[in-house]
Amino acid sequence: MGSPKNIGDGIRLARNVGAELWYHTAEASVLGFLPPRETCGFALALRQPGYIIVNRDTQRFFNETKLESHRGHSDTAHVDPELGTYSNDPMWLILDSANIEDQRAPVLEIFS
């Protein structure tokens, strides 16, 4: 998880000046998306109700109101043991107009 260029230099620098490490038993993986023909993804920040997420079978597969912003990946990444694939990949975000027009989250303009 993370960038291939992330080799831990920041942790080593912090430890060298006496910093203590904490929260190493948790992950931080927000939901995001990779637009077609792009080489980098974008974090997805929805700030109000009015959306659902469905999987390839058009089924809602978790309670979006309980989505933990620091565990987005673990809330959505279920592996099908028989196929060895992600059960919910691809997934689609369906938004209401209030979320599409929310100026605090301009990254959502891609969906309009």
Rank of each mutant, 00 (worst) to 15 (best):
P4D: 05
P4R: 11
P4E: 08
P4H: 10
K5Q: 15
G8Q: 07
I11A: 07
R12H: 11
R12E: 12
A14N: 13
R15P: 00
E20A: 13
E20H: 09
W22C: 14
H24I: 12
H24Y: 11
T25W: 09
T25L: 12
A26W: 08
E27F: 11
S29H: 04
V30G: 04
L31D: 00
P36K: 13
R37H: 09
C40I: 13
G41F: 05
G41T: 03
A43R: 09
L44T: 03
A45T: 07
P49F: 05
P49M: 04
V54N: 01
N55Q: 02
R60Q: 14
R60I: 10
F62V: 06
F62D: 06
E64A: 05
L67E: 00
E68S: 12
E68W: 07
S69D: 08
H70Q: 12
G72Y: 04
A77V: 08
A77W: 08
H78A: 13
V79C: 06
E82V: 10
E82N: 11
S87F: 03
N88G: 02
P90D: 05
P90W: 03
M91D: 05
M91G: 06
M91V: 03
M91Y: 07
W92M: 12
I94E: 02
D96Q: 06
S97W: 06
N99C: 13
I100F: 00
E101D: 11
E101V: 05
P106F: 09
V107Y: 08
E109G: 08
E109T: 12
F111R: 03
S112P: 04
